[in-house]
Design a protein around this nucleic acid. Structure first.
Length: 111
RNA sequence: CAAGUAGGACAGACGAUCGCGGCUGCAUGUGCCGAAAGGCCGCAGACGAGGAAAGUCCGGGCUUCACAGGGCAGGAUGCCGGAUAACGUCCGGUGGAGGUGACUCCAAGGCCAGUGCAACAGAAAUAAACCGCCCGGGCAGAGACGAAAGCAGUGAUGUUUUAUGGAUUUCACUGUUUUCGCCUCUGUCCGGGUAAGGGUGGAAAGGCAGUGUAAGAGACUACCGCCUCGCUGGUAACAGAGAGGGCACAUGUAAACCCCAUCCGAAGCAAGACCGGAUAGAAGCGAUGCGGCGGCCCGCCGCGCUUCAGGUUGGUCGCUUGAGCACAGCGGCGACGCUGUGCCUAGACAGAUGAUCGUCCACGACAUAACCCGGCUUAUCGUCCUGCUUGACAC
RNA sequence: GGCGCAGUAGCCAAGUGGUAAGGCGUGGGUCUGCAACACCCUGAUUCACGAGUUCAAAUCUCGUCUGCGCCU
């Protein structure tokens, strides 16, 4: 991804959970927090309750792909954590993409 | 053709665009960082999850702990032979069970080494006379027979009386009562014999038939089962025929303790090795002590250990060339082994396979490597191939 | 990734192979003018699920599912 990195450390995740804002829709939950860096950091979390390894990997890939393809629409300098809910199981790319853009607009970071 | 049975192969395909992972190359990529080695970014190229990658149920390699020690304890396996690095796996046999058959299934050593347990029911549960059957005796009752006595009737006779009537003597017969003896039956009690039968139970003292007997019983006999002995075949499990014991210590349970045989040191890549960096010490306990080896003892090695507070959460290796894969030949019934030739086929470290479009079809199941292999078990949409069995039809 | 533990009524749970204890709660009754308290009665046929051993399994053995803990 051109303008973004992935969020890796557990400490960073906990920081976003404690200090960031959260909004949700049917399929996803999104936390956001300004990080003061010049680029975005994206973290994706899929619980074991959602499904087995195949299901969790597929949801992760769909979220990452839809973020990648609409990356230039997002504002810079934000830590974003996206959590998949159980209802996101077995959904196709279109629905995940529209859910992500919907949440971006709610957070007023999608331009 | 249908039904079945055993084994094997595949796991949507092709194209276009964008994207991800490590690898290789870039003498000319006028890019960035660095003293350099090199790294980042960029470009190009080929490669990039499974038959179960799963569950973590076994086995092995590898690493550390005394380069691995001894004993006890503990654990695992359990018909026989073989394969293998090893196995609880596989192959070939034996025995048993199921199926018309192809074929499938079986934790399949030992309760005559010892100990434990067996609820309820039942007379009795690992050892038995409760009922029953039979024999002997006592008591009671009933019946038949015999003897004696009494009573009644009939007949004959004697006495008395006028009288054939009445009374009475003796004898015979009939009926009846009592007593005694003996036999049979019934009931009860006592002593003994007997395991053939008994609504129980998972299991009741080898089974079944006959002889036999007071009644019965392996008491005896035939067949079957069991045990012992040797013989023949087989490496063996075992099979076959035979002789003897005459059934005794003989129920079931060892996925009850246990016995026998064989095997097992422990922990696990978050193992472990190396490099670099950061920090702050304080208190307590010890050489008949503490730690390293784990449950215990011995032995060996080392000299510190525990608690609180503080610091780090980096990098490299281990990491993929391996009991590897493909093909051919040879040996073996087979599992498998040997030889030759060729090939290199993911290696991440928050963790890579996705998205969109088009075409086609059977319309796509279960499911994502994380040190690596050999198995087992479990999940699974379907497609194809081969061997064999049974049935129907045709020639 | 590796190692280990557990699953019994709505909840907490005991349970040596032989009829599955107990407490809380629920429901019904007694008491009360009505309640509370107290007292009495009350339920497992799927012992997480599926096979096996056994005469007999919550218990023993094997497999599956679910939940939890520990190790950098």
């Amino acid at each position: 991804m051109k303008f973004s990195e992935s969020l890796k450390k557990n400490k960073d995740f906990q920081n976003v959970y404690k200090k960031g804002k959260s909004l949700a829709n049917n399929y996803l939950v999104m936390y956001t927090l300004d990080n003061g860096l010049g680029k975005n950091r994206l973290g994706i979390s899929v619980s074991k309750k959602v499904g087995n390894s195949v299901v969790r990997h597929r949801i992760t890939r769909l979220i990452r792909e839809s973020y990648r393809l609409s990356e230039e629409h997002f504002r810079c300098g934000i830590d974003i954590v996206i959590i998949a809910r159980t209802s996101a199981k077995e959904k196709d790319y279109r629905k995940i993409e529209s859910a992500l853009i919907h949440l971006g607009k709610l957070h007023k970071i999608y331009i």
